[in-house]
Design a protein around this nucleic acid. Sequence first.
DNA 1: TGTTTTGCCGAATGACCGGTAGGTAAATTC
DNA 2: GAATTTACCTACCGGTCATTCGGCAAAACA
Lengths: 222, 222
Amino acid sequence: MSEQEPVPPPEESGRESSAPPEPGPPARRGRGRPRATRRRDQILDAALAEFGESGFQGASLAAVARRVGLSQQGLLHHFPSKEALLIAVLARRDEVDVRELDGLGDTAALTGLAERNTRRPGVVRLHSLLTAEGLTGDHPASAYVRDRYARVRERLAHTLRTEHGDRLPSGATPDQAAALLTAAMDGLQLQWLYDPDSVDMPDLMGLLTDVLRGAAPDPTPP
Amino acid sequence: MSEQEPVPPPEESGRESSAPPEPGPPARRGRGRPRATRRRDQILDAALAEFGESGFQGASLAAVARRVGLSQQGLLHHFPSKEALLIAVLARRDEVDVRELDGLGDTAALTGLAERNTRRPGVVRLHSLLTAEGLTGDHPASAYVRDRYARVRERLAHTLRTEHGDRLPSGATPDQAAALLTAAMDGLQLQWLYDPDSVDMPDLMGLLTDVLRGAAPDPTPP
DNA sequence: TGTTTTGCCGAATGACCGGTAGGTAAATTC
DNA sequence: GAATTTACCTACCGGTCATTCGGCAAAACA
């Protein structure tokens, strides 16, 4: 008899923690999820957390398994390989991501996104880590990141174009502004992760959008 | 007799390739560098390139050694450990960095820095990779990155303050602008590394500085 | 010339890692 | 209640990695 130590619950889930249960495959049995899927979700939560802390390369399957109170091979029963596990994590992340992207209908929504990110450092870490790791040759996250950049910039540029036409009041084109806003978001996340107190992400994102839209400076003197 | 294959010369050195030889310890012998130091520099060049391609965690000592036509143990004769090697790379990088930081006397210099970075993707990759890796617990680059952020932001804020006082025409404070400029630089580098053609770093950094300084939009219509 | 130092390599070590094979017990299905 | 599927484990394997040890030849030095 080996006692297992299923380590405390994960800090944040891939599915938005407070999101209403999706109207997909109907919940079977008394318990919430369709039996088999629950463990999978637990594992994905653990993987998200572990990859977020150590990166994909840095994390070991054993470490992920330990988080759910499983042996490494028990974990491999649910996901055939480490890479498959990452893919699954990203796929689930993608659902949320698409929803968030759709939410960027106006530029102010970026500030809201920044604020929400403040409350889920694990996800932000995962994103930052994978974006960098994806640069190294044939990393499983490369395509994901590249694709994500394209979508985000495109979506943002589209929004800006509908709001301001082919040139913002500041003189920037929608494409330029999109690239800058995306870059600022990523860069601020890094600074914030290193020193949360010195960087106010929502505030700075709001400032940048205002400035790019050519808003007049705040009339109230300091 | 085992033929070695010392792989072609590195694309870029840690010391600025065209910088004048430093007036430090006098060059001994006919050849340029003081005998022993030359191999060390070769190794550091190789390590910079390798770490830039695979990251610190992802790179192996053997791979670095191969680049200089050395065995892994031969390399360890010059640097006692992998970590020591990274530290040495960063220390050498620091010299250049300080010089570049001093060059940021006016905001326009940022555009110049972006342009120079376009010509040394290896260094940019190293920087991006290590910044992310440094987030993972007790990484040898953590302190370096944290410290670097502090210095860069401080230096930038100082420059902005001398140029514009306590508030830029755009309404941003020097500290805010410094954080945003730093973030944009980092973020643009990532986007640029993923897709060099779609992102014009110098152009966008120039645009951002202009916008933050509250410059009027370019009067010439598209 | 003899001695020491330097530069380097071959071999070995121990840790860890991802992944495979085979088995077992419980749950599910019939 | 029998058959099958699912969930998971123990044991194992081949590979890579950083690091250590001991030795050897060339260079530097005396």
